[in-house]
Amino acid sequence: MAPTTPLSFMQLSSTRRPAPVLADRAGVGAPVTIELLPFTVRPVRTQADLRKAVAVRQAAYARHLPEFARSLEQPEAADHDGDTVILLAESKEDGSALGSVRIQTNFRQALHVEESVDLPLWLASQRLAEVTRLGIVEGRIGRQVKLALIKACFEHCEHNGVDTAVVSGRAPIDRQYEQLLFTDVFASRDPVILRHVGNMPHRIMYFDIASGQERWEAARHPLLDFFCHTRHPDIDLGRHVPAAWKHGLPRSQQAAGAVVVGLAA
Rank of each mutant, 00 (worst) to 15 (best):
D190M: 08
P38D: 07
Q253Y: 15
E115D: 13
I235T: 04
P38W: 06
G238K: 01
A264P: 07
K92C: 13
H240S: 13
L123W: 06
I150P: 03
V113A: 08
E130R: 00
A148C: 04
V113L: 15
G142Q: 10
L180N: 04
R45T: 15
W122V: 03
L237I: 08
D118L: 07
E67Q: 02
L128Q: 15
A256M: 10
D81N: 12
E130W: 05
A110P: 02
E67S: 01
A69D: 09
V260D: 10
S116Y: 08
S188F: 06
A53H: 02
S96R: 11
A110Q: 14
T230D: 03
V54Q: 00
G95H: 08
S211I: 05
H240Q: 04
V113R: 09
H221T: 07
V241F: 03
E67L: 03
E115L: 07
A30T: 09
L128C: 10
S125C: 13
I141N: 05
A2M: 03
T33I: 13
W245M: 15
R220N: 14
R251G: 08
V260F: 14
S14Q: 08
E214F: 04
T46V: 01
I141K: 12
S100M: 09
W216D: 07
S211V: 01
D236I: 00
A258R: 01
V41W: 13
R25F: 14
I193F: 02
A62M: 09
R239K: 11
D81F: 14
T183E: 13
L12V: 09
